[in-house]
């Protein structure tokens, strides 16, 4: 005879259909995106994204305003190429990058959320893919937004690219250029941020890698006349060079660097960033 019994106290079990891996990944992407942009959070979490968005969109808005006010006079020298807009908002992208990657991955480690995520259908790989997707999605808003606004705005003013085919081609090039910038900066930032479990220091790490190497290359090439190919180790400026190459141009600092080297360099940085990220999370062990 048994002397023990477990009573059914009537706790309700979840009887709906379970979403599985795809649904879990979608949730992570969505909630990470919300947390980065400060949606559904207190006002102070929105301050930073708003400041960055203002700085990012300001150049495009100024040029559009000028186009509306003085119209055709803007044609010629004064009128920037679409791809040049990426460079004008460069500082906003940098600041946003230093915030996004740490917010996306570091907080989960600090708060002990990572093991909870991994107890769902998510694995480390699918978790990181979801986080990466959220980083890319939010950064695309800030990076592609301004040039897209300019393209649409100039078109409405009758100053856009001639013909539908050219218009679509311009759009495609802008999207591709923005995507390159976002993927390279995002990968490097995620890699740097994965080195620590404190958000503040993760941001410092991102700044140090991006800005430190960029300054280093800048003074080596300009100050000490190092060869221009050294710019391939500048993860901050290198992805921006893809935009002019798509539009059959070269920007000043990269004149001597061939397009294939530029592409190869960017690929290298993506591999380095993702590799560091993967290595860091592999080391985290059985969390």
């Amino acid at each position: 005879m048994t002397s023990a019994e477990i009573f059914d106290r009537g706790y309700r079990r979840f009887e709906g259909t379970r979403g599985g891996r795809g649904s879990a990944m979608r949730s992570v992407v969505w909630y990470t995106t919300k947390s980065i942009l400060g949606l559904g959070r207190k006002a102070r979490h929105k301050v930073f994204p708003v400041i960055v968005a203002v700085i990012a969109f300001l150049p495009a808005i100024i040029f559009l305003g000028m186009a509306i006010l003085i119209g055709d006079l803007l044609e010629g020298e004064l009128r920037p190429e679409y791809w040049e807009l990426f460079g004008f908002s460069f500082m906003a992208f940098l600041v946003f990058t230093t915030m996004v990657a740490p917010e996306a991955i570091v907080r989960d480690r600090r708060d002990g959320m990572l093991p909870l995520y991994l107890s769902t259908p998510l694995t480390k790989v699918t978790y990181l893919i979801s986080k990466g997707t959220a980083v890319i999605a939010t950064m695309m808003i800030i990076v592609l937004g301004p040039s897209l606004l300019a393209l649409v705005g100039f078109t409405v003013q009758g100053m856009g690219p001639d013909g539908f085919g050219t218009w679509i081609e311009t759009l495609a090039k802008l999207v591709l250029a923005a995507f390159t910038i976002v993927v390279v900066l995002g990968a490097v930032a995620l890699g740097a941020a994965s080195l620590t479990d404190r958000r503040a220091f993760a941001s410092v790490a991102v700044v140090m890698v991006l800005l430190g190497l960029s300054f280093f290359v800048e003074v080596m090439v300009n100050g000490v006349d190092a060869p221009e190919t050294l710019r391939l180790i500048d993860p901050l400026n290198l992805p921006f060079e893809v935009a002019p190459r798509l539009f059959d141009a070269k920007s000043e600092p990269f004149v001597e660097v061939s397009t294939s080297l530029v592409l190869l360099g960017n690929l290298g940085w993506v591999v380095a960033g993702v590799g560091t990220l993967a290595a860091s999370y592999r080391r985290l062990g059985a969390v």
Partner: peptide, 17 residues
């Protein structure tokens, strides 16, 4: 809170821009 992130913002946006 998050003073280091605001500090980075100050260094990059205010001093740098």
């Amino acid at each position: 809170k998050n003073s280091i992130i605001w500090g980075i913002g100050y260094i990059l946006i205010w001093e740098g821009l």
